[in-house]
Design a binder for these strands. Structure first.
Lengths: 128, 128
DNA sequence: CTGGATCCCGACAGATACTG
DNA sequence: CAGTATCTGTCGGGATCCAG
């Protein structure tokens, strides 16, 4: 987390602190397993709640709603309710959300590309 | 998380399942706040344990060691002990670790670039 | 179907103390 | 300084039930 350094006490000092703590807060929100998997699952498209639950393997009802609310609150995901019966709710990444997704993609890609490296590292690590 | 689809029952089927579950496991390990912050803190350089504790703001002694062990086990971080007194232990990203770091950089960058967007989204979300 | 609310247990994370 | 161990409380997160 790169932080701009400024002599203490200047007028803009407080603002910078605020911005940094906000950045940390957002990072903490976003940098968790379920949030990233949801972002990855949404991809370019639109998914319903139940589709997401199926798509994001292993996520519980609670964690899904919780993270979706959080992502919506932070403006990463847009939630559109179709007032039909039964209700139909769709989730889509916003533009910033899609931008973040490319980073998540990179992590996913990295994971698959280094399976062997990790496995070998684990074996070596196991020898003790 | 893109998964290659193969007709069930083929010889390589089991291998693919194993690879996927391994990928998920690695992802779960890596996609957490402290691990990502540690990777980001290490950057291109080398840091001692105590330097990392200072650098990664808010991390506890325990979480730091725990995550460092995990990153070492997965071959993302290299740990070198200098048998001096007092002991001096240094941590560096491995090559795969540095590759992953670029993705983490992207997330950090994203965070700082969208502070306003997030703040506005939160305000709008608050109106309920 | 979506999702809020509640209960409850296990895992996680902090604090502290102890070794090399 | 670096790291392990233990103890303890908190809370993440699953299961379940209820409502719109």
């Amino acid at each position: 987390m790169v932080t701009k350094r400024v002599p203490a006490g200047l007028p803009e000092d407080a603002d910078l602190r605020r911005a940094d703590s906000l950045a940390r807060e957002i990072f903490s929100d976003v940098a968790n397993k379920w949030a990233l998997l949801i972002i990855e699952a949404l991809g370019e498209g639109t998914l319903r709640f139940s589709e997401l639950r199926d798509e994001v393997e292993g996520v519980s009802h609670k964690m899904l709603t919780q993270n979706l609310r959080m992502l919506e609150r932070n403006g990463l995901v847009e939630r559109t309710v179709h007032p039909t019966v039964p209700p139909r709710v769709e989730y889509t990444l916003t533009e910033p959300g899609r931008e973040l997704r490319t980073a998540v993609d990179a992590i996913c890609g990295w994971t698959h590309e280094h399976l062997d490296h990790v496995e070998r590292a684990r074996e070596r690590f196991g020898e003790r």
